[in-house]
Structures are given as structure tokens and as C-alpha cells.
């Protein structure tokens, strides 16, 4: 990949998400994307996320939430990753998620841009990928691991 910006960096990782409902947790991760310059308009972005969530909840079995959207407010394909000790309900049948992947895709992103997100999505179903993230001890370690995985 020759994207100028990495999919994820340490400041987009929050290994200790504040307790709260889905909206609060997504907002807190989204604020990191805004701070990193990946999202230009927080409200627009959150509205797009919410619109996708309304179609069908993004919670998956195994404690995963993947709020995501394509949004005009996004500048580059970006992943925000958070871990919640308390758990956040993303509508999965087997209960709340402890791993939250906030996937932001630019609205007009070309196919080449999107392959990194496709690679990420493929990793999300591998239990070893989730296990590593559950046991990560600091944000940089988690970000490095993800970045390495999706570029492989």
C-alpha cells in the first residue's frame, strides 16, 4: 500500500474506553479521529455512522463492534480501536462488545484505498487477531500490530 497515512496510529487507540452506551463510546473514539485530522466534521461523521447502524446493528458474535461508514467527512481510510472493560452493546446476539473497531472510509475513496479496509475486515474474523488485541498492553503496541497485519 502506498497510502500516505497509516490506517491506524497509537493516538487512535484507546485501550480503556470510558464506560457508556454505544453513542458515547463511538463519539469518544471519533473525537480521536478528529484530533488526528482524519475526520473533518464530527457531527456529520457521527450521523453517517448512526445511519449505517440503523440499517443493521454492527455488533458481531464474539464481543466485537464494528461501527463504520463511508462519509464525506473522512479524509483517509482510518481505524479507531478501543477496548471496553465494561462492554458496549452493539446489538450482537451474544451480548456486548469489548473490542470496538471504528472504521472510517472516505466517501469517494477509490478501490485502491479500500483494499486496506478489506484487509482489516478479513483480520477481524481471525481469533488470533482478536486475542492479540485483547492482550495488548499499550496503545502503540496495538496500533503497530494492526498496521503490520493489514499491510501484510
Amino acid at each position: 500500500m502506498t497510502t500516505s497515512t497509516a490506517l491506524i496510529t497509537a493516538d487512535l487507540v484507546d485501550l480503556d474506553l470510558p464506560a457508556g452506551d454505544r453513542a458515547a463510546v463511538v463519539r469518544s473514539l471519533a473525537e480521536r479521529l478528529v484530533a488526528a485530522g482524519r475526520v473533518t466534521d464530527l457531527d456529520q461523521f457521527l450521523a453517517d455512522i448512526e445511519a449505517r447502524e440503523a440499517q443493521m446493528p454492527t455488533g458481531l458474535e464474539g464481543g466485537i463492534g464494528i461501527p463504520h461508514c463511508r462519509s464525506a467527512a473522512v479524509t483517509a481510510p482510518t481505524l479507531g480501536f478501543g477496548r471496553s472493560a465494561a462492554g458496549v452493546d452493539f446489538g450482537a446476539e451474544d451480548g456486548p462488545a469489548d473490542l470496538v473497531f471504528l472504521i472510517a472510509a472516505p466517501a469517494g475513496g477509490g478501490d485502491a484505498h479500500m483494499t486496506v479496509l478489506a484487509a482489516l475486515a478479513r483480520r477481524l474474523v481471525r481469533s488470533s487477531f482478536k486475542d492479540t488485541l485483547r492482550s495488548a498492553t499499550d496503545a502503540a503496541e496495538a496500533a503497530d500490530f494492526i498496521a503490520k497485519e493489514v499491510s501484510a
Binding site: 454492527t58 463511508r70 478489506a118 475486515a121
Partner: peptide, 17 residues
């Protein structure tokens, strides 16, 4: 999937595995 950025590929990976 509707957005075409996450579930599509997760499902593909799961089926392949």
C-alpha cells in the same frame, strides 16, 4: 453488504477459513 467495507470481507474470510 450495504457499506461494502467490512462485513463483505469478514464473511469472505470466514467462509474461506
Amino acid at each position: 453488504c450495504p457499506t461494502g467495507i467490512a462485513h463483505t470481507y469478514m464473511a469472505a474470510e470466514a467462509l474461506e477459513a
